[in-house]
Structure formats: structure tokens, C-alpha cells
Computed example of a mutant assay.
Amino acid sequence: MKKITSEDIIYAALSLFSEKGYDATSVDEIARESGMVKASFYKYFQSKEALLLGTIVLIEKLLDADIKELYLKHQLPSREKLRQLYLIALGRIYKNKVHLLVYSVPLIGSKEEKIAQAIDRVEHYLSDVMIDFLIDAYGEFIKDYAYDINFVVKSMIVNSLRMSDSELSWTEQQTLAEFILSITDMLAQGMLNPNHQHQIMWSPDTSLYEGSNQFWTKGKQISYALQHMDTVLKQTELNEATRNEYVQILSRLQGELSEQNVEIAHVKALLLFLGQLPELLEDCTKLKAILEA
């Protein structure tokens, strides 16, 4: 008998999430679909939220592999690369309606924040690549409008799948990708028309596009840095007493930063202590700069 893996559980869960929705799917159902009992599920994932996070991380990994492969297809015309990017987005992200699951999760607890951050990474990565391909297909002059086109394209994909009663077949995905590409052509041609002036809605400095080399809102920068510090502490070799001390100080820092009126002096003192650990110094420096900006 084939040993069940965490990916087997993720694919089983995706099937159920797409069919029934995240909230309506129970751990019992996911376990049965995976071919195991409920107790065995918890050997792989601590909760349904942890499974959702694992799902998004897997999608991010598969998306990255697909896009890297697409970048290597130098012989493809730029417009065809854009069409294939739309197919990748349809197949890897939107087909599973994971974006709809995540946007319905309340951003209050640390688990939910990690889920939101994971989907943000996927969405921003896809946006960066799409804008890169738009410029390649329509020229450098489209750059000012590329963010608006990206917004329209994603909206079309989301609404097309939201209106669909069942999962799109491969043929239907091909048809939808062609349709979106034709709309992209019309948008690009219209926006590049020198006889018309167009209002730019989205641009690199809006919070919608908080990519790796673009502006991040303070809240998300802080949240990302704290999450990274927590991960670093878990991975750094420290004796138990020292680790516990740093974990407690990081917990106090998280508490201070979650207060409505942040005591900057307290926060700086905590950062000064945490910064003594070389592995945390970079994040501490970033946090200090964010708070002083």
C-alpha cells in the first residue's frame, strides 16, 4: 500500500475545498478523502488552518517552478508567453479557489496572519511576473498602465471562476486564457493610443502592489519581520535557557507592537536586546527603521 504523504492530503483537501468551500469541509472529510482516519490527519497537520497554510505554500512552490520554466522558453513570442502565464494562473491558483478561501479568513490570530502573508506572496509574485510579461509583449510604454491591466486581468479570472458551477476543464481554461489575452490586447492598444488620456488607478506605489522591490505598508512590514524572527529563533542553535529568554522578549515585542499606542522607547529597548543575537540583528534594524519612518 502506498504511504500517504502530506501532499496527498493537500490535494484531497483542495478537491473538497473547491467543491464544498473551506468552512463547510471538515477534518473528518479530508481524512476520509485522503484514505486515513481523523487521528492520522493530525500527524501531518495540527489543524485545518495549518493544512490551508501548507496548501498555499505548495501552490507557491508549483507556481514558481512553472514560471521559471516559462522564462526559459526563449523561443516563444512574448504574447504567447503572456497567454501561457494566464494558463498557469488558472491552473495553479484560481482553479482551486484558494484566493477566495484566504480572503475570507479573519486576520486576527498569528495563524491567520501567516495564511494571509502566504497568499500575499503568491499574489504579488504573480503580479510582478505578469507586469514583466506585459512590458515584454507591448513595450516599455505600457509600464504606466501595466498595474491597471493586471488588476483587470485578475478580476476577470476571479469572476469567471466564481460564476462557474464546476471546475473548468483544460479546454475551458484554454478558451478563457485566449479571451483574457484578447481583452489584454484591447486594453493595451487603447491605453497606448496617443489620442486618449487614461486615468491611472493602480501604480507601483499603491499598497495593492507590495512586491519585493516596492513599498510595503508598515503593518505588513512589521508582521513579516516578526514572523521571520520567530522562524530564525526556532532554527538557531541555542541552549534552552537562552532560547527561552529570546522567545519571551520576542513575545513581549509582539505584544508591544500590537498595542494601539505603541511605546516606542519600550520597543527600542526590546529590539536592542534581541539585536544582540547576530541572526536577529538585520530584522531588528529593519523594525527600528520602520518605526522611525
Rank of each mutant, 00 (worst) to 15 (best):
E29R: 03
K95D: 08
Y71V: 00
E60M: 06
E112D: 15
K95A: 07
L70G: 04
I108Q: 14
L62Q: 12
Q46G: 13
K38I: 01
V129C: 10
F133P: 07
V129P: 09
S78Q: 11
I9F: 13
L72C: 04
L16I: 00
Y42A: 03
A12R: 02
L107C: 10
M130L: 15
I59G: 00
Q84W: 03
Y86H: 12
A89F: 14
E29M: 12
T25E: 06
R83W: 00
Q46Y: 11
A24C: 04
I131S: 10
L85N: 11
N96R: 01
F45I: 01
I10Y: 06
A13R: 00
A12G: 13
K20M: 09
A116W: 15
R79C: 05
A24H: 12
V129D: 05
Y44P: 06
K73M: 12
K20G: 06
S104Y: 04
V57E: 12
L82T: 00
I88W: 05
Y44D: 01
D8T: 06
H99R: 03
I56G: 04
A13V: 00
L51H: 06
S47P: 06
D64F: 09
E69T: 06
R32S: 12
I56Y: 04
L62K: 07
I56L: 09
E112A: 15
Y94H: 14
R92V: 02
E123G: 13
L87M: 09
L87P: 03
F41S: 02
K38M: 06
F45Q: 03
A39M: 07
V105S: 01
V105R: 06
A137G: 04
A50C: 05
Y22N: 02
Y125P: 11
K48M: 10
E80R: 09
D66W: 02
S127G: 10
H99Y: 14
F17G: 01
G109Q: 09
L70P: 02
F133W: 12
E60F: 10
R83L: 07
V37P: 04
K68T: 00
S34K: 01
I10F: 08
F41D: 01
I67W: 09
L126E: 14
R92S: 04
V102H: 05
I56V: 11
E49D: 15
G54P: 11
A65D: 09
L53D: 01
V57D: 06
G21I: 10
L62W: 05
M36H: 03
N96I: 00
H74V: 07
L82Y: 07
S34A: 15
E113C: 12
L70E: 02
L51W: 12
L100C: 08
D66V: 00
L70N: 01
F41M: 02
E33L: 05
L72P: 00
F17L: 02
G21D: 14
L63P: 05
L85E: 08
V122A: 10
D23P: 04
K95P: 00
V37T: 04
G21F: 12
I115W: 09
L16K: 02
E69H: 08
R79A: 10
L70W: 01
H74Q: 09
I131Y: 14
L53K: 11
I10Q: 03
I131N: 13
S78W: 05
E113F: 13
A12V: 03
L72A: 15
V129G: 08
D136A: 15
E33G: 03
K68S: 07
V129R: 07
I135Q: 14
D136N: 13
A89L: 15
A12N: 02
A39L: 08
A65L: 11
S47M: 08
G109Y: 13
